[in-house]
Design a binder for these strands. Sequence first.
DNA 1: ACTGATAGGTTATCAGTGATAAATGATGAT
DNA 2: ATCATCATTTATCACTGATAACCTATCAGT
Lengths: 217, 217
Amino acid sequence: MSLATLRSPRKRKGHGAERRQEILDAAMVLIAQQGVHAVSTREIAAAVGISQPALYAYFATRDDIMAELCEQAFESLRTRLENVGDLEPGESTVRLMCRAYLAFGLEQPNAYRIAFMIEKPSHDPDHDPAGDRALAAGVATYSVFRRQIERCALAGLTRHVDVDLLTQTGWATLHGLVALMIARPSFPWAERDRLMAAHIDHFVRAIMASPSGSAGK
Amino acid sequence: MSLATLRSPRKRKGHGAERRQEILDAAMVLIAQQGVHAVSTREIAAAVGISQPALYAYFATRDDIMAELCEQAFESLRTRLENVGDLEPGESTVRLMCRAYLAFGLEQPNAYRIAFMIEKPSHDPDHDPAGDRALAAGVATYSVFRRQIERCALAGLTRHVDVDLLTQTGWATLHGLVALMIARPSFPWAERDRLMAAHIDHFVRAIMASPSGSAGK
DNA sequence: ACTGATAGGTTATCAGTGATAAATGATGAT
DNA sequence: ATCATCATTTATCACTGATAACCTATCAGT
């Protein structure tokens, strides 16, 4: 009818959840290109081909988009950890899981940032559905990690048997290296591969009862 | 909150570096109260009693204020690590240093955030004086940490003798726990004291040659 | 075929942000 | 007393996330 409305390259009508995922995908691509803080709602909307307020039909706030991406990042890491498989519990499996974790963080720093390093300003004690779902995804990922440790603990391979304590300090150990290397790339780090290998050695040495870790170089 | 009401009566001319530090102090207080992201340049200016553009006579950008606070946070941590003292090198000294690190991070989360968890959007290859000074302060703090590890290494108390590798993975280990607990407080963490103690045990176990770490709970 | 409801979208606008330019005002030297 | 200087202010810019109000297809029901 009115040709004047064709000025902008308006796209077809999205079918509900499709467009929702379109938005998430566009946001992730932009974030991967420009970093988390540099992407605005207007850029995301333009990438999808809709106006900026249209986003708010699918997400209550910008942070909700981030929370959803956080959830997806957690699930990405979770499948990666699950792909380590249910080999027999032992040091080599633990090493594989550590490698998978570090690889995820260093290969997809933006996903890692969103999952672990973006602080949510929401301190509302009110319901925060998006944040809750992200937290649940984080706990689910944690559970995969924990399961491997637990199997080692049940086999008597760990230094002690408080599985949550082992898992949390172990996870924190891995997170520390990834987070610091992402947040402070200017620091004069040692060579990456040696650093990763040493860190995994330290992990195994800290957690396992009788590690076969290389003691020297 | 109306910013105008927070504004103290206009002050007299500032005396160079005095006012500069006034700004930094006000910024740090506000950040400690409201968090890093929630503090605007207008709030900082109002707290000092000047107009918002007046800040730019002392700092080129808001990020420069943050970089300066980052530098001060690093120095605060450095003195804390130095206060561990130059006792004889050994496991107990290392434990003290770990405790000092974790205590700093958990007691002053905002200073810790500024020092380690705020990513600078400046990717300019151009000169970035403020960022450079912050990095230098970080390296200086790293050196204090490194010195203790080095003394242990020279005494033959560490698992191997690549001091930078030991220090960097060790530092990352400590950072991981602090950063995760700060960034994800909603996670169902184990009890804090036990977690800290276990983490320090893991650190010692990973770094030292013959740790006396408690093996059970 | 008309009606109304509704999903999906738009334009216009708001308050707040970091930052800049130009006008103001006090200070200190001459 | 005059003038230059510099700290500081007012006014403003472009941009941000978010809201209000208004269009416009599409579709179900009579």
